[in-house]
């Protein structure tokens, strides 16, 4: 497997942002009420991720180390604005459905996390591949969650009726608590199969307490304090 493919495999499977790293929880829980929203969110995040990874990788030697985080934030925020304007022009319906969660891509830890952990240290092509891999990983994470919620919560998939007429939809799954419930079940199953163990670290029962994998982890003092 060459280095480019390895990056994609890494994002989709090995360091999957949703299930293994548990990054970007806000959009994961908020927009997975329908498969359409999940695809819209996943793809727009991927576009931002690829573009910001590319730009950050190109200018990585120009940015002084002390101001790199603010510089990354400006680059990411600009890319998000570009994507938001494109969405408003061509995909108004999805844009309205996702609402405030589109501008909130700026504070998605996946993007700043990849900028800090990968794009700021690696050449452009590999960084783009990393962005594609992580973006695909995030998208299929959202897809799995939303397919489960929409199928059992509304009986539909992408708006089409799938479940037989006698099926009584579990309305709660497409409401707020359902998001927590479904994600909890998925991680529980993955834990039971021994696929993921990051969950414990994330909530502070393992090595690094709280917010494992967060871009700010090194600068953030909360980690040390909670420990």
């Amino acid at each position: 497997m060459n280095a480019n493919m390895e990056r994609i495999y890494n994002g989709v499977v090995k360091e999957n942002p949703t299930f293994i790293m548990m990054l970007g929880m806000c959009p994961t829980l908020a927009v997975t009420t329908s498969v359409t929203n999940a695809i819209g969110m996943g793809l727009s995040t991927m576009v931002v991720l690829v573009m910001s990874n590319l730009i950050i990788s190109l200018v990585r030697k120009l940015i002084p180390d002390e101001v790199r985080l603010p510089a990354f934030i400006v680059i990411v925020a600009s890319m998000v604005t570009v994507v938001q304007l494109i969405m408003q022009a061509y995909f108004l319906e999805i844009n309205n459905a996702l609402g405030v969660y589109i501008p909130l891509i700026v504070v998605n830890c996946i993007i700043l996390g990849r900028a800090e952990a990968y794009a700021s240290k690696n050449p452009p092509l590999l960084s783009v591949m990393d962005g594609i891999g992580m973006g695909l990983g995030f998208t299929w994470g959202l897809l799995l969650l939303s397919a489960f919620r929409e199928l059992f919560g509304a009986g539909t998939l992408m708006g089409y009726q799938v479940m037989p007429a006698f099926y009584q939809p579990i309305d709660m799954l497409v409401r707020a608590p359902g998001a927590f419930l479904v994600l909890a079940f998925i991680i529980m199953v993955m834990n039971a199969w021994g696929i993921s163990n990051k969950g414990k670290e994330f909530v502070g029962e393992g090595e690094g307490a709280g917010c494992a994998g967060c871009a700010m982890a090194d600068t953030c003092l909360v980690k040390k304090e909670v420990k």
């Binding site: 909890a184 529980m188 414990k200 909530v203």
Partner: peptide, 15 residues
């Protein structure tokens, strides 16, 4: 064992 950590917190949040 499998529920320890994140799943437990998410279950609490759901309730």
């Amino acid at each position: 064992e499998p529920i320890k950590g994140a799943p437990m917190v998410l279950f609490c949040a759901a309730l």
